[in-house]
Structures are given as structure tokens and as C-alpha cells.
């Protein structure tokens, strides 16, 4: 029974919504019933609109994430492993990450327009920051006792790096990737909303709002939440596998 407690609130809300629609408690034209949202959902799925929009969003999300995470890993390694790199790039990066992500939108739209390139740039920035921070932290905070073990057994610098520092930092690096994945999905919707052009699930939301179609808006929100939840579960699964290997983080 306990496992189902979490469903209580949403079900009550759904019930109240249904009752409110059924008895016509609201006269607003913007009020839609659960049945209407369901009909819209079926229509969007059947007509293929959903798949086009979702496919465009996910492709953007994943390419932005891949670029941001790749650059983030590289920069994180430089900051975490090299004292010189940290002195040269650390202060700039720390300043850069203080600038709210959305403050980049005007610059990005001037430089890259409103199309896919601009959006992917924005998404990769969103993924970059947590990956850099966690990769650098993980590499910097490798326990000294373990590095001493490497010294005792005559490990070369390369052996210490690949056989001790990287594996010791892996949980932290993974946390960075996990956050990067979540952030870039949130940023995908933001980018589609603010850099309006082309297909995407964020554009579905905008269409709905511009045409006063709340059923479409609610459907879009539902899809966004579900995708976020799926990405989250996927990352959790990977994290649990890693945890089994490492014991506790």
C-alpha cells in the first residue's frame, strides 16, 4: 500500500479537476476538461505531431548534452589535474558560471540566430557547467592515502592518473554528467521557448498558448515532465550500477 501513497495527491487533483469540468464550475473559455486533454493527446500521437516535436527536442537535447559534456570533461580535467591550468582558467570559469544561463540568450541569438545552432550552443552551456565543476572537484579530491598507495607500488604519473585518480573521481564525474543531462533537458524547453523557431516540444507549448488551446499546453507539460522523469530514471539506473561497484560514494 505504502508504494501507492505518492499517487494520492495527483489522483485527488485529477478527480477535482474532472468534477469541476463536469459541473461547469468555471465559465472561462480557457478551462479544459481532462477528457479534452486526453483527446488532444490521442490526436497528437496519432497524427505524428508529437513524434516530430519530441524527436526534434530530443535530438537537440542529446547533441547539446554531448557537446557540453565532452567539453566539460576536458575542461574539468584541465582544472582538476593541472595546477597551472587551474591558475590560468579557474578564475575565468568561476566568473563565467556566476552568469545566469538565460543571460546568454541575447548574445547567443545575435551570434547564432534563432535556429538549431543557437539552441544547441545554449544547451551545451547548460550541460557544461555541472560537468566541469564535478569533474574538477572529483579529480582534486582524490584521497591522499590512496595516492600514497600508488607511490608505494612505484606507479608512474600515468598509472596514478588512469588507475587511481580517474577511478576515484568517477562517482563525482558521474554526478556531473547526471546533472548535465537534467540541466540540458530543462534548458531545451527554455531554448525553444526563448529562441522561437522550428519544431520542438517547447514550440508545441507556445502554439497552444498563442491559440488559447490549454489542452495542448497541458499535454505539452505532461510530455516534458515524462521525458524529464525518464532521463532521470535512466541516469539513476546507471548510478545504481556504479554504486554497486563502488559500495557507497
Amino acid at each position: 500500500m505504502k508504494a501507492y501513497r505518492g499517487w494520492l495527491l495527483p489522483l485527488v487533483a485529477l478527480g477535482a479537476w474532472w468534477l469541476a469540468s463536469e459541473y461547469g464550475w468555471s465559465r472561462s473559455g480557457l478551462w479544459v476538461s481532462p477528457q479534452q486533454v486526453l483527446a488532444t493527446a490521442i490526436h497528437e500521437v496519432a497524427s505524428g505531431h508529437l513524434w516530430v516535436a519530441l524527436g526534434a527536442s530530443l535530438a537537440r537535447d542529446l547533441s547539446g548534452f554531448a557537446i557540453g559534456a565532452g567539453l566539460g570533461l576536458a575542461l574539468g580535467c584541465v582544472l582538476g589535474l593541472s595546477a597551472l591550468g587551474n591558475r590560468l582558467l579557474g578564475p575565468s570559469f568561476n566568473t563565467f558560471k556566476q552568469v545566469s544561463l538565460f543571460a546568454w540568450i541575447p548574445l547567443i541569438s545575435v551570434w547564432f540566430g534563432l535556429g538549431d545552432v543557437a539552441k544547441v550552443v545554449f544547451l551545451s552551456l547548460a550541460a557544461l557547467v555541472p560537468v566541469v565543476v564535478n569533474t574538477a572537484d572529483g579529480l582534486r579530491n582524490v584521497p591522499l592515502p590512496l595516492l600514497e598507495v600508488a607511490r608505494v607500488y612505484g606507479y608512474s604519473r600515468w598509472q596514478s592518473l588512469t588507475l587511481v585518480r580517474l577511478p576515484a573521481a568517477l562517482p563525482s564525474i558521474f554526478t556531473g554528467l547526471y546533472l548535465g543531462l537534467i540541466y540540458s533537458w530543462l534548458a531545451t524547453i527554455g531554448a525553444e521557448y526563448l529562441l522561437v523557431s522550428g519544431e520542438g516540444i517547447g514550440n508545441t507549448l507556445i502554439d497552444g498558448s498563442e491559440h488559447f488551446r490549454m489542452d495542448l499546453v497541458l499535454f505539452g507539460m505532461l510530455v516534458i515532465g515524462t521525458v524529464g522523469w525518464l532521463l532521470n530514471s535512466l541516469a539513476r539506473l546507471a548510478e545504481r550500477r556504479l554504486q554497486r561497484l563502488y559500495g557507497t560514494f
Binding site: 590512496l146 600514497e148 607500488y153 577511478p167 576515484a168 559500495g247
Partner: peptide
């Protein structure tokens, strides 16, 4: 060779591989 008070095993390696750490070089 050394045995420290805290065992200092590598958490990402199993028992066999941890012993083999000593033989790496």
C-alpha cells in the same frame, strides 16, 4: 611493503585485483 591502519584498498577493485595492485610494476 606496508600495511596501513586504514586498509587503503581501492574501492573500485575486488579483493583479487586489490592484491594485484602491489604487482603492477
Amino acid at each position: 611493503g606496508i600495511v596501513f591502519q586504514d586498509h587503503r584498498l581501492f574501492p573500485w577493485l575486488n579483493v583479487r585485483d586489490n592484491i594485484a595492485v602491489g604487482l603492477k610494476n
